[in-house]
């Protein structure tokens, strides 16, 4: 998995690519932790366009980050560019009502 973060005026964008599984999910969690704990930013877009695979270990990271971001209404985690097979897995897990989805990063960033 590759992950990198870019900081915008209103939010931060985390771009992940490749596999998010039990091996790599901690790296994704760490990327989010740096944004929330070190930069105090809770408005985050996760660009999933390059994600090829995500297991429940990755889904756990998404839920944990969403809980952190939504606390005291200080922000939220938005998902952008989610590939269809991954959207289907999120749907199976009952995650659709818990996140906002945007087709691309630009519209997701613009929504904040």
């Amino acid at each position: 998995m590759e992950v990198h973060t870019t900081h915008h005026k209103r939010c931060s964008v985390v771009s992940a690519a490749g596999r998010v599984d039990s091996q790599t999910a901690p790296e994704l969690a760490q990327a989010f932790k740096e944004i929330t704990e070190e930069n105090d930013v809770y408005k985050i877009v996760l660009d999933m366009a390059g994600v090829e695979f995500i297991s429940s270990a990755g889904l756990r990271v998404l839920i944990d980050v969403q809980k952190t971001c939504r606390r005291w209404n200080r922000g939220e985690l938005i998902l952008a560019g989610v590939p269809k097979v991954i959207y289907d897995a999120l749907d199976l897990a009952g995650f659709i009502p818990l996140f906002k989805f945007f087709d691309d990063v630009t519209s997701a960033v613009g929504s904040f």
Binding site: R19, D21, S22, Q23, F53, S55
Partner: peptide, 8 residues
């Protein structure tokens, strides 16, 4: 966990 990618 490192094996997961190869198993995949």
């Amino acid at each position: 966990f490192e094996s997961l990618e190869e198993i995949g």
